[in-house]
Design a protein around this nucleic acid. Structure first.
Lengths: 196, 196
DNA sequence: TAACGATACGGAGCAATGTTCCGCTTGGCA
DNA sequence: TGCCAAGCGGAACATTGCTCCGTATCGTTA
């Protein structure tokens, strides 16, 4: 119970070659299945696609959340890193916030069911929730503070709360062509300007 | 206020006494379990609470959605009926819309998990989705049209879309004290005023 | 009131899916 | 080459939605 280095990158050397190979195979298979069937695809499907057994998948990724995190981690990082860049490049913090939120929305709506699973109360997905939001909330907070300081949005709303709201608005967007999550998020962000 | 009809109206007379008794028992048990464990509580729990078998529950309510619909139908009706009343009483259609949406939000956030299940893509919950929204969307449309006609909100957003958005914003509200669905919905409605 | 057919009931059982367990295989080192 | 811990596969278990069917009950009719 004290194997320290799972999940995080560095100590790759200590892994057996076949294990490293399988981890890569699994990530690729998971990414493919997520695109085809959404992030709620049965674990068995992913194992089958990768050509490995159930045991293998769970040894590498103890819960499905860990697998999802691993698959999308770099996209989340990219989104997080874009925040300060947008703020620096824009003369209106409110506009920068809007653009950054758009990046987040684009990320969510192109991943079948990811927004829904982010909101799931299933304890297994708690790690996912935590991992993604820990990375993004501080970025959102910086943007919001800048917009508040510029007097462009009303204060009082937390960054986590806003991220939750945006995530919620994205639920179901990918499977309902009459539901335009981007527009609704835009309306929400516009509403931040109004005194409330 | 009595045994009028259930689901498919008229032929109530033809039901056996024990069947009618069980239906009432089931509705009461379901309401209690929904409050205690949320609307996603296992069907077995409801059957156990009511002291009946699985077969009985499914004969009366072919899917879980039918049971949920039956439990909350009159609250949905009350909400729908409040729409025109609010519009008549208020001098600002936008304010009336806001108040009516608040009623809907209040309904959702006091029902554990109902908002989430409304959004579920599970085919079994389609009936629920349809039943509730068929009742409420026309009411919402009337309010929105009035507000548009008064120039108080921007046109272009469908009533169904708005209802979806509001429902989404309510997801998870009951189990996260730091997430204030009412405020976020208010911000969204405020955003409708802004040109977008 | 007794018998009988339609109606309703109970719960075992099936299918899908997440997760664990354990005996077998294999990579990498001595 | 031989050893053994790391790793693997997949059967098995648990949960949960839903179905099926033998049995019990209701209500009518003789």
């Amino acid at each position: 119970m004290s194997d320290a280095d799972e999940g995080t990158a560095q100590m790759t050397r200590s892994k057996r070659a076949d294990a490293r190979r399988n981890e890569k195979t699994l990530l690729d298979a998971a990414a493919a299945v997520f695109v085809a069937s959404g992030v709620e695809a049965p674990v068995r499907d992913i194992a089958a696609k990768a050509g490995v057994g159930m045991g293998t998948i769970y040894r590498h990724f103890p819960t499905r959340a860990d697998l999802i995190i691993a698959v999308y981690q770099h996209q989340v990082d990219a989104c997080a890193e874009a925040g300060p860049a947008l703020l620096a490049r824009s003369d209106s913090p409110h506009a920068a916030l809007g653009q950054w939120i758009n990046l987040f929305v684009d990320f969510l709506v192109t991943k079948h069911g990811l927004a829904a699973v982010l909101r799931s109360d299933n304890a297994a997905f708690n790690a996912l929730h935590t991992s993604f939001l820990d990375r993004l909330v501080p970025v959102c907070a910086v943007l919001m503070e800048a917009a508040e300081a510029a007097g462009e949005i009303q204060p009082g709303l937390g960054a986590l709360e806003l991220m939750h709201a945006v995530g919620n608005l994205c639920i179901g967007a990918e499977k309902n062509p009459n539901y335009n999550a981007r527009r609704l998020v835009r309306i929400l962000i516009a509403g931040l300007k109004e005194p409330h």
